[in-house]
Write a protein that binds this DNA or RNA. Sequence first.
DNA 1: TTAGGGTTAG
Length: 679
Amino acid sequence: MPPPPPTFEILLQTPSAIKTLPQAAQLHAQLITTANGASPACTTALLSLYSNLNALRPSLLLFAALPRPAATAWKHLIRCYTASGLPLESLRCFVRMIGSGVRPDHNVFPSVLKACASAAAIGMARSVHASVVRAGLEGDLYTGNALMSMYAKLKDMGNAAAIMFDEMPQPKIGGGLTRLTHSEFDSEESALSCVEKVFRAMPRRDIVSWNTVIAGCAQSGAYEEALRMVRRMGSENLKPDCFTLSSILPVFAEIVDVLKGKEIHGYAVRLGLHSDVFIGSSLIDMYANCERVEDSFRVFDMLPRRDHISWNSMIAGFVQNGFFNEGLALFRRMLGAGVRPVSVTFSSLMPACTHLTTLRLGKQLQGYVIRGGFERNVFIASALVDMYAKCGNIKTARWIFGGIEQHDEVSWTAMIMAYALHGHADDAIAVFKQMEAEGVRPNYVAFIAVLTACSHAGLVDEAWKYFNSMKSEYGIVPGLEHHAAVADLLGRAGKVKRAYEVISSMPMKPTGSVWSTLLAACRVHRNVELAEKVADKIFAADPDNIGAYVLMSNIYSHAKRWKEAANVRLAMRKRGMMKLPASSWVEIKNEVHGFISGDKSHPAYHGISQALSVLLERMEQEGYVPDTDEVLHDVDEEHKKHSLYNHSERLAIGYALITTVAGSTIRVTKNIRGDYRQG
DNA sequence: TTAGGGTTAG
C-alpha cells in the first residue's frame, strides 16, 4: 500500500486552499526542505500560488529560478504584472515569452489584452489581436471577451496613448505581424466597431460577452444600440444582471429619461440587486441628472454599503442641481466617515465654491487638492481656473491654467471665459487663437466664451467674424447662446434695432431671457418705443416675467413717464410680485457678513456709517458727484442720494474698511439677480 | 483568465 502523499502536495494540487501570503510562505518553506522542492514543477506550482495572491516579488524570484519557463509560468508572471498595475512590464514579459519560443495560448491572452488596455498601447493591441488570430483563438470565449473589453477601454485614448507605447521597446511578435500606428487605428475604424466586430464573430457568448458589448456601446454614446443589445440578450436566455444594469443606467441619465430609469430601479429591487454599490451610484447619478435629487439622496441613504464612488455620486448630484451647501456638508460627512477624497471628489465639489463665491472654501479645498497631489489634474485645474476667475482673482486663475500639462477643450474654454468675464477681451481672443494653434478645436461652449468676450468689450466686428465662422469653418451650428451673445453685443453697442432683427430671425424660439437682455439695452439706450415692443414679446411668452416688469418700470421712470411707471408697479403688485432688497456680502476673518440695502441692523452699523461719511466727504472733495439719475424712484434728490449711499455693497465695503488692516483685499459679492420674487 | 458606477468650461 503506497504511503499517503505529504500534505503540501495535496495543497499544491488544490491551490485555492491557500488564501493568504503567510500560508503560501509556509508551504514554500516546507517544500524547499524536500528532495524535489526546487524542481521546475514545484517552482511553477509555487509561482502560481504567489501570482494568484498578486505577490509580485516572490513570483519574480521563482520565475527567475526557472531555466526554461513553460507557458504556465509565463502566464502567471504576466497575469501578476497586469494585476499589480504594471501593464508595460506585463507586455515586455509577453514579448520575451514569444522571443523564447513559447507559443501563447488561451491562458495568457486575456491578461495581455488587459495590459494593452491599461497601458493604452494601441499599436501593441493590434499586434496582440493579430497574434490571437494567428494562434487560431478568435473563437475562444475568454479571449474574445478580453478583446472586446480592450477595445472598449481604448476608445477614448488620445495622443498620450500612442506616446506611452512608443516609449516601449519595439516588439517582434513572430513573422508576418505588423504594428499599426495610432493614426491608422483611428482612421480605419472606431474602437466601438472593433468591439462589435469581435462580438459578432464569437461562436459562443456568455453573460460577460453581452455585458462587455453593452457597456462598450453605452460608454461610446451608442445608446440605442446599447438598449437593443439588452433586449437581444433575452433571446439567448440570459437575464440582465448587476453588471448589465449599472452599464445601462447611465444611458437613461444621459438621455434624461427618468421613467425608464425608474423601471430599471424597480427591476433591480425585484432581483434584490438594488443594494449593489455599482447600481447604487448609477441610480444616484441617474436621478440627479433628471433633476430628482431627493430620489438620489433616498437611494444614497438606503445603501447598506457605500464606497467612495457612492459618496462622490451624491456630492456631484447635489452640486449639479444647485444644492451647494448640501454638497459641501456631504463632503464633510464623507471625511467624517473616514472615506478618502479622490480627484473626482474635488472636481465635483469645486463648482459649489464657485457658485457660492466663497474664495475661502475654495482655497481650503485647494489645500486638500495640493496635499492629495491633484493640482495638475485637468478636471480640477479647470474648475479652479473657473473658481478663481469668478471669485475675482484672474491672476491666480491664469497661474493655475499655466500649470496644466495637457490643456483640453474645457480648460481652454474656462480660461477664455475667465478673461471674458473680467472684460479682458484681447486676452480671451489670444487664448482662443492659442488653443487653435495647439491643435484643440474650439467646440460649442468655446464659441460662447469668445462671443461673450467680444460682447463685454463691444467688439461687434470680431463677434460677427466668429459667429459666421462657426458653421462655415467649424461645422458647429450656432445655438441660442451664440445668437443671444451677438444680440446682447449689438444691444450694448446701441444697435438695438439690429439686435431686435437678430433675435426675431433666430432659427430657434427666443427665450424670455434673450429678450430681457435687449430690454436692458433699451433701458441703457433710452429707447422706450422698442422697449415696449420687446416687453410685449416677453409678456406674450411669459406673463409672469418679473425682470421685464422691473425693467419697464425703470425705463418709464428714466423717461420721466411716472404715470406709466406707476401702472407697471401696480400691475406687479396685483400679480403679487414683491421687491426683495439687494444684498451684498463680504468675507472677514473666515466669516461671511451679509448686508441688505438700507439695512441698519448690523451691530457695527454706527461704525460703518461713520466710515462711509468720512469716505464720502473725501470723495466729494475730489470731485465726486453722485449719479442720482440711476436711482429711479419718483422721489426728491435728497432721498435719491440717501438710497444711493445705503446700497448694500457700500455697507459691505464700509464694514470691510473698519475691520481689516490697510492694504487688505476686499471682495464684495452682490446678488444682481433675483431681486424680486412672486409673493 | 473576461464584464459594471462618480468629475471640469455654458
